[in-house]
């Protein structure tokens, strides 16, 4: 709730031991990593659980390896970007058609309600049969995984235009296109942004998980390959890299999307 308040109305955060909640977030991460380090070096076999410091070193080494960034990291990021863009455009577009047509919305709504109950990765072999291996089935599957959350959030946004504003628009004789650009999209933007944030998460999961299963390159494939060939340090380094990339991606895109959210001003 607090995040939806305008900036000037948000309460100042309480401090504990003189530290703000933001600092505590960092402290908790450092403590967790320290505990993992101690655990890996004292109790668990370092072959099974690689210490975080070793993970960091190995990640840096991998990033310095010729062809790793261009052959593994960039293709994964490219697929995530493509899946995210497709999920966003298709999700907002489908939501708009549903908002425009009540019968279409009623017809589709039951599918949306049960969509995430179906394990979508199960259809990956079908996509491979139809489209072959490579980026296309990964992007399609990941976009399909992320689009529905964009649809549901966009619909929420489109439905949120208050009645007086709708009447105001009608009284000014706004046409369909003008209503879309001047009223509907700006009003729905905060909810669309929330949907896109989640859509990015789903697209990232979709791409990496699909690469893990069947791809011949990419970060997901790299982790699976390291796992199958007992390169434990590489596997942990890959996992750390994925976590860091996903986090950075989420923060960067989130910062852009936050700028669209007028409720935060």
């Amino acid at each position: 709730m607090t995040a939806a308040l305008p900036r000037y109305a948000r309460p100042r955060p309480d401090r504990l031991l003189g530290l703000t909640p933001a600092v505590w977030t960092g402290v908790l991460a450092v403590l967790a990593l320290a505990a993992l380090e101690v655990l890996a070096r004292t109790v668990v076999d370092p072959i099974d659980l690689v210490p975080p410091t070793t993970m960091v070193v190995r990640t840096a080494e991998l990033l310095g390896t010729a062809g790793f960034v261009t052959g593994q990291v960039l293709p994964s990021l490219g697929l995530i970007a493509a899946a995210f863009a497709l999920a966003g455009v298709a999700g907002v577009g489908l939501a708009y058609t549903m908002w425009r047509s009540p019968w279409w919305r009623l017809a589709l709504q039951p599918y949306l309600n049960v969509y995430y109950a179906i394990p979508i990765f199960a259809v990956y072999p079908i996509l491979v049969v139809l489209l072959g291996t490579g980026g296309v089935p990964i992007v399609l599957l990941s976009a399909a995984f992320g689009a529905v959350v964009v649809v549901t959030n966009s619909l929420l946004g489109f439905d949120s235009v208050p009645e007086p504003v709708r009447k105001l628009a009608r009284s000014r004789n706004l046409g369909t296109r003008r209503y879309l650009t001047a009223i509907l999209l700006p009003a729905a933007l905060p909810d669309i942004a929330s949907g896109l944030r989640l859509g990015l998460v789903y697209a990232t999961i979709g791409v990496l998980a699909t690469e893990f299963i069947l791809s011949t390159r990419g970060l997901g494939h790299e982790i699976a390959d390291a796992y199958h060939t007992f390169r434990t340090a590489d596997m942990y380094a890959g996992i750390l890299l994925i976590c860091l990339l996903a986090l950075a991606l989420n923060i960067a895109v989130g910062a852009v999307l936050d700028r669209l959210d007028w409720r935060r001003r």
Partner: peptide, 19 residues
């Protein structure tokens, strides 16, 4: 239908919060 020369003021101010 609505006329351009008619202005309507509603009970709720109908301001556009993003503007």
């Amino acid at each position: 239908g609505p006329r351009d020369e008619t202005a309507i003021v509603f009970q709720d101010s109908a301001t556009l919060p993003w503007r």
